[in-house]
Design a protein around this nucleic acid. Sequence first.
RNA 1: AGUCUCGUAGCUCAGUUGGUUAGAGCACUACACUGAUAAUGUAGGGGUCGGCAGUUCAAGUCUGCCCGAGACUACCA
Length: 1143
Amino acid sequence: MEKYKQYKNLNSTDIEKNIQDKWAKEDTFAKSLQIREGNKPFIFFEGPPSANGKPGIHHVMARTIKDIFCRYKNLKGYYVTRKAGWDTHGLPVELGVEQALGITKEDIGSKISVEEYNKACRESVMQFKDLWDKLTVQMGYWVDLDSPYITFTNKYIESVWWLLGEIYNKGLLYKGYTIQPYSPAAGTGLSSHELNMPGCYKDVKDTTCVVQFKIASKQTTNNIILDKLNDKKDKTYFLAWTTTPWTLPSNTALAVGDKIDYCCVESFNPYTGKEMVCFVAKNLLNAHFKTEGENQDFEAYKKGDKVIPWRLLFECKGKELVGIDYEQLIPWVKPQRQEGDAFKVISGDYVTTQDGTGIVHIAPTFGADDARVAKLANIAPLHLVDKNGKNQPMVDKSGKFFVLDDLDKEYVDKHIDKEQYERFAGRFVKNAYDDTLTDKDNTLDVDLCVELKAQNKVFKIEKHTHNYPHCWRTDKPVLYYPLDSWFIKTTAVKDRLIELNKTINWKPQATGTGRFGNWLENLVDWNLSRSRYWGTPLPIWRTEDGKEEIFINSVEKLAKEIDKSIAAGFMSENPYKSNDYESFDLHRPYIDNVILVSESGKPMKRESDLIDVWFDSGAMPFAQRHYPFECTTEELKQKFFPADFIAEGVDQTRGWFFTLHTIATMVMDEVSYKNVVSNGLVLDKNGNKMSKRLGNAVSPFEMMDKYGADATRLYMISNSQPWDNLKFDPNGIDEIRRKFFGTLYNTYSFFALYANIDGFAYKEKDIEYSKRPEIDRWILSLLNTLIKDVDSDLNDYEPTRAARRVMDFVCEDLSNWYVRLCRRRFWKGEYSEDKISAYQTLYRCMEVIAQLGSVFAPFFMDELYCNLNAVSGRNKATSVHLTDFPTSNDNEIDKDLEARMDLAQRICSLVLSLRKRHNLKVRQPLAKIMIPCDATTKERIEKVKNLILSEVNVKDIEYLDLHNNVLSKTIKANFKTLGPKYGKIMKSLAAKIAAFTQDDITKLESEGKYALDVEGQQITLDLTDVEIATKDIEGWVVASEGKLTVALDVVITDDLKKEGIARELVNRIQNIRKDSNFEVTDNIVVKVEYDRDLQAAIEMYKGYICGETLTKELSLENNINSPTTKIDVIEGKELGIYIETIK
RNA sequence: AGUCUCGUAGCUCAGUUGGUUAGAGCACUACACUGAUAAUGUAGGGGUCGGCAGUUCAAGUCUGCCCGAGACUACCA
């Protein structure tokens, strides 16, 4: 017979290496797919990592989650394809290359050609692919690495173009002018990613001011508020606060909150002392007007007085102020009326009264929110017209007010007050942009404020510290600046996005409704444009005047259009005509060489933008199959879309999760994924973010080399819910290794040792369930419950709960109770039915554990399974990963049995604590224990009596009737039943019950009810209203827990003492056998130094002693010549002993 | 700054519809046990359940505010 594999010690990394080799040799992953081919697919999308960064420990986390559910569904019979993918475009790649080559973006096109630059990017994207592959193999992540999708391939790009084309065709792609972060010092726009680089947001101290916007004498609409002001109208102002006074010349509106309360206050300007009336939010009134000035004497006020008198004229809602016209604050430039109205109060949904005045100055050219609310209210931005006839904000791209020479002459004459404007033209809006200026020089902000002060237009000037973003490259402040960009009109499908999101099962739910849901509620259009080089080019060609354009959604169409262009004489050759996708390149600069011809025969050039890399990754459900070019819609929907399951870090909520959802909604009107698990971050053990800079980043390879992949995986899953942040502590992995894998390994080793001796190979028919002993049926009952629970947890995407269940079962139930209590059954006696039952039961438990655990710890569990199966040959599958998920057998679940065993465990625990307290070794047998209980409990205990007796080494159990008068009892109110009935008097009622005498308790018990009076209320208690427990038995040593009480007979009779000595002797002989490295089956001869007590014990228990220790000859001698060692079986005596094996 | 998540023993985490001694593991201390031994058992110390209010007969659990950590989103003037 083949033997169960036995180990010298547990070496996880060796086991894992062997299993890796086995999987590679037998192609187990592919096989696991083959056996499910044709079955219902379980569709999974792999979020593509960038291979130009090294994998970190958090990738092990995310991939473990993915692996668990894919393996689970595979075991459940689904066909689970898992195509790997690589994200290869975008900023991280470009930045990496720039760093490696020592260049900046400005050098592209001069120091290095776009062609060379992109070549360098292409080469660098797979820089760490080997490391990623190594991680994948070592951690046991099953994903198809042989045919991954790669975002830079022409086929992938073609699919992306096609998808974008669908959006374009629906009219949801447009070119717009929006406010974006822009670094004048670097001359480039910045992505949100760049803005979020560490250290970009810095506290800066800026000059801020509260400005007075005067109500216009001529109003375009009627307004009740104006009537209320009547003769004070010409000295009434709106107060608005700004941290960027340089944007004030570009002001074209003021925003108020509709529902915010505003005050109209009469007072004086603190600088000029002139009388004024102004509007300010009620909440902020006292920030601007001191309480002690309220209703002070106006006549007595002199300019410069510390306390400025003021009085409240009336209050109103923001909504009532909307529509009022005001005078332009700094009338240098007149807005172009055709772009909309200007200088009106509008409503702004984002206005708050946290600081400032509750009235917000709006400069649509320099604020994203400003631009949005202005557009909604049809308010014109303040534009200049440059020499090329293009609209420009007042600030040019180098960060200074436009100089007149750069502007259109006609426009200047018509719209600009040259005399006023010229004094400031050419001034940089931040000193940092001008190399000739320092912090000490006056800023434009300060000069503007000073001028406004002189004009009675400023109410307050102060320095204010706030958080402001800086360009990570130049370290200079960023400007929010209007730029041309292409947008996807996601706002047009907002409602549908929200609706479809409600059908997605988010784990945790809060991420879906909260973070993601809120994000959708506040959706803005998706800015697709990136002024970059390495990425998917935007496939739109336009004539110079922008009046004609074409969208290219396939290579075929591109080639056709180029042919037309050749005919028109704009191009000479067609590089995209081949069917060989390897023969051309859709990237820049090649694609930029393509000039197409418009309907009217004009040349069209490509819009120079690239598209956001997030569109690339969100397009993967389609692009990974080169849909629709190599995959039909029918095939896609049958096999590849939408995903049943995806999982990534929670940081992807607004990244990949969003782009997947949006693209699928816009193109397919369907969700992209049905279930999504978003896991939290992996922090270091102190809860700090891991970073290379701090040196606290953990290498996944180091962890797996040291502790093994299984332990690492199981640690990460079991330690905390995946969506909570994980404080990663290597000691935790070690704990899992010792506690769980060590215990399971011990259990297996124990089994293997005896099964090999007995030749158990699971060849016998299963012993009938009903014929198995109580303890076997107990562990089988738990096992079946475990299967059921783990199945339902995994089905609910609750990996942590499932993993903890498996671990608890192995450590507590299987090892610490079943095996410990059953040890004797395995090594004692003949190969009987009871023994076979024990082997079969333990075997089955381990087999099922291997299957359930295989999703978490794929290596160890496969080893375990194969070791078992190699001998039994019970299963055809050559790997646990090729088996079917176990099914639970409800007939084997016995809740009453589980309750009985629980009772047994508690009784044992109590007896052991009594032994401890009275210093009675477990090896010393005792006569009996006594348990007060009712008839049902007695019946239950009877069934597990033998287990208890042998576990605690006691001869008998006696039961004590509950009405016995040697018992003393305690009573406690049952709050759960009484609470709802007697709410208010609960406290005194509980106190009265607690004060019951033994007689009271007896009365209640015998009559079944008890009447009493609490605070004048008549109450009748019945037995369910109280909890009665036995606490003491007179004359016995007693321990109790909850309702259970156990008494122990501590009298050691002569016979018991002899037996105790016999057991001590057996124990010593066993120890010596082991220390001498005898085989378990060796027979021995034993000689012990004579002692009277020992002789008495041996006389009585010779058979027992010899039987236990395989002793063939046992003798007592006066003198042992060369004793093996000395033993102390009789207290206070050291006796020599000699043992040898019989050959 | 906003939104969301989290805060329970030295550490990592459980804690059911609110119900009365708040649990487990690790770590620590002591004592046992030892044909599973890189284990195991028993006992012990260790908690104002982040803070303050509120609802309730009853709050770790529900509500509000505050504090701390983290993520995301942000020049909210």
